[in-house]
Write a protein that binds this DNA or RNA. Structure first.
Length: 439
RNA sequence: CGGAGCGUGGCGCAGCCCGGUUAGCGCACUAGUCUGGGAGACUAGGGGUCGGAGGUUCAAAUCCUCUCGCUCCGACCA
């Protein structure tokens, strides 16, 4: 992509409404545009990152055996009356009427709808286990949206729903999601720690929140430092095997949000030098809720003995749009964003340091063509700004690799590459740069 | 939902208390010149009617009323 042909409205100054760094950087880097309180338009740079994150979430859900569907954003109120949540949910739910005065709502979550779909088709234990997920926009009319996409009213969420014959089977499903989440967040360059959590309005008796440590987070957390060094299961993890050893390893080290924090246990179990009390951003939550929805909504399957029983369910959410903010909170410096490669909007940026200089232009074009031909996502800064402005913009938008091409280096046949994450620079020939940055 | 505050060119702000020339500054934008390795300089330009409605007044960005939107602190949530 040529920057001169791209749409990247960078702001030089800090927008006054943005208090926390991720919100500020997303606005300055031209990633999002606020349209209303807690409602954002995704501009090209932000949209690219959103898609990358979404894809990682999708791949790990698929790997774990979950199956993707897509449910609508609007739901019938009557469906929610079946579960009793239409009245229970309160003003956070956006209620709408259509032209026939039929009551609708913009879905804040999808337990009811997925249960309705499930019960329409599945009648036998032989079709279990089943885990269906979708990645869809949600709306929760927060009393106080803030922090940009971290606490928006409209947000993109991956929500999965598992269906099993009994509690033991449901816990197997729960464990699969637990492991999938460990992998999902690790792939994005995050350390997300599973913490025992309250179950909230969705209900149930087993739940973990996955929390990224950050000073600006909304949740207070208490952890044993050791949890930061636990190994994340690899790509080859066998989801059909018994995953309980992994779960045990992760849940036996103390980690809890302040809501469920047990000070006595914390002090008893965790040595003083390993106690950490900090804040974090919740990026995912998993629940086992048993028959909470299947009983009132009559989602029954016949067991081996021919008797109909309500299925045991769980739900598993990942805040996809929130993750943008969480990643930036974790990966930035004074100059701007430092995208982990897995979610970066582009892998490489080429900075033409003297636009209009025939030799420099030619070298840039050649490198741009070669990298593009080899499948590397490149943003080529071919604007006629001065070098300093290009450096600043490149650092701000945080593309992992910068290739700087100017008359000085080119006189020796060299270009400079800079790694955004640590600022490391190297000078090399264009051919070596290509070899270095492919793959 | 309690408390505080803000809406003035695309962005950041001044002006408002103490109404009174053509509403000002920085950035951005347009044209040009000189430049060219960390947000370059100069010259010349364009763009706002002050969130909206109503009122007071000879006169309103400025005072009053209502209204809409947004932000921050707190209690609540992927």
């Amino acid at each position: 992509m040529r920057l001169s042909r791209f749409f990247l409205p960078i702001l030089k100054e800090n927008p006054k409404e943005a208090e926390i760094v991720s919100h500020r950087l997303m606005l300055r880097a031209g990633m999002i545009r606020q349209e209303a309180a807690g409602i954002y338009a995704w501009l090209p740079l932000g949209f690219r990152v959103l898609k990358k994150i979404e894809q990682i979430v999708r791949e790990e859900q698929d790997r774990s055996g979950a199956i993707e569907v897509l449910m609508p954003t609007l739901q019938l109120a009557d469906l929610w009356r079946e579960s009793g949540r239409y009245d229970a949910y309160g003003p956070e739910m956006l209620r709408i009427a259509d032209r026939h005065k039929r009551e609708l709502l913009y879905g804040p979550t999808n337990e009811e709808m997925i249960t309705e779909i499930f019960r329409a088709y599945v009648k036998s234990y032989k079709n279990l286990p089943l885990n269906l997920y979708h990645i869809q926009w949600k709306f929760r009319d927060e009393q106080r949206p803030r922090f940009g996409v971290m606490r928006g009213r409209e947000f993109l969420m991956k929500d999965a729903y598992s269906f099993d014959l009994n509690e033991a089977a449901a816990r197997v499903a729960y464990n699969k999601m637990f492991v999938a989440y460990l992998r999902t967040f690790a792939r994005m360059g995050l350390k997300a720690i599973p913490m025992r959590a309250e179950t909230g309005p969705i209900g149930g008796d087993l739940s973990h929140e996955f929390i990224v440590l950050a000073e600006t987070g909304e949740s207070g957390v208490f952890i044993n430092r050791d949890v930061l060094d636990l190994p994340v299961p690899g790509e080859d993890v066998d989801y059909e095997s018994d995953l309980t050893p992994i779960i045990k390893q992760w849940t036996s080290v103390y980690a809890a949000t302040e809501d469920v924090h047990d000070a006595a246990r914390f002090e008893q179990e965790v040595p003083v030098d390993k106690r950490v009390n900090t804040r974090g951003i919740e990026v995912g939550q998993i629940f086992y809720f048993g028959t909470k929805y299947s009983e009132p909504m009559k989602a029954l399957v016949a067991g081996p003995d021919g008797v109909d029983v309500p299925i045991h369910g769980g739900s598993y959410g990942v805040g996809v749009s929130r993750l943008l903010g969480a990643i930036i909170e974790a990966c930035h410096d004074d100059a701007g964003i430092k995208w982990p490669e897995a979610v970066a909007p582009f892998r490489v940026s080429i900075l033409n340091l003297k636009q209009g200089d025939a030799a420099v232009d030619a070298a840039c074009e050649k490198l741009y063509a070669e990298l593009t031909a080899k499948g590397v996502d490149v943003l080529y800064d071919d604007t006629d700004q001065r070098a300093g402005a290009k450096f600043a913009a490149a650092d701000l938008i945080g593309i992992p690799w910068q290739i700087m091409i100017g008359p000085k280096g080119l006189a020796d046949g060299k270009v400079e590459i800079k790694r955004r994450s640590d600022g490391a620079r190297e000078t090399m020939s264009p051919a070596d740069a290509v070899a270095r940055l492919v793959g």
